[in-house]
């Protein structure tokens, strides 16, 4: 009996992981190709997985994790660069792992700077939230660097590097920072 229950749960757990990832792959594919994701099956799975029990289950078992790392397309990334009193400021950390986490955060945060167009209410709220986080980072950069100026500018700079095809066609392999957005804050 105990064994049957165990195998039953294992089946449920694996099915859960399978469904979460199937829905996630389908959605990211359609998002990437700007297509409407209108599969009723996926809508059903998403609705089911959105139920509280499944959300708690997925969170505390780690089964909610999607595995499409670097999938479909590797997302663009960039740097947050502050400027105060003519001095360039960056978020510097003592450990490589923290800088990696900060890097992941800025990429996620600035996705909507790179991909504008979605004007849904949720997206707008998230955009406002991202601006707040952006401001928070600016203030911390200002404080950590003992900035004497009354204003600080923070910009998100998209890192551009020629594609493999371009390099093969003799384009110089050089990094370029493309300033996408700049925000200036008065701090006094």
């Amino acid at each position: 009996m105990k064994k049957r229950l165990l195998y039953g749960w294992i089946g449920f757990h694996l099915l859960f992981i399978l469904l979460i990832n199937s829905a996630s792959s389908y959605t990211s594919y359609h998002d990437f190709h700007h297509q409407k994701a209108n599969s009723q099956v996926v809508k059903g799975i998403t609705k089911l997985m959105g139920k509280k029990f499944f959300r708690y289950y997925g969170r505390y078992t780690g089964a909610e994790t999607g595995y499409g790392f670097f999938g479909i397309n590797v997302r663009s990334n960039g740097m947050l660069i502050g400027e105060c009193d003519g001095k360039e400021l960056t978020a510097d950390f003592k450990s490589y792992e923290t800088s990696l986490r900060f890097f992941s955060m800025t990429n996620a945060l600035t996705d909507d700077f790179i991909k504008p167009g979605d004007t849904s209410q949720v997206k707008n709220i998230m955009s406002e939230y991202n601006k707040l986080v952006f401001k928070n980072i600016a203030v911390t950069m200002f404080q950590k660097n003992g900035c004497q100026d009354s204003t600080i500018s923070v910009s998100y700079n998209l890192l551009s590097y020629p594609s493999l095809a371009a390099v093969r066609a003799d384009t110089p392999a050089r990094y370029q920072l493309i300033k996408l957005i700049t925000a200036t804050y008065s701090l006094r």
């Binding site: 694996l14 990832n21 999938g71 479909i72 590797v74």
Partner: peptide
């Protein structure tokens, strides 16, 4: 399952 989906999400993208 994890590796399958990791590979699947890559193979449906042209850049991979």
């Amino acid at each position: 399952i994890a590796y399958f989906f990791s590979g699947f999400d890559k193979v449906i993208g042209v850049t991979w």
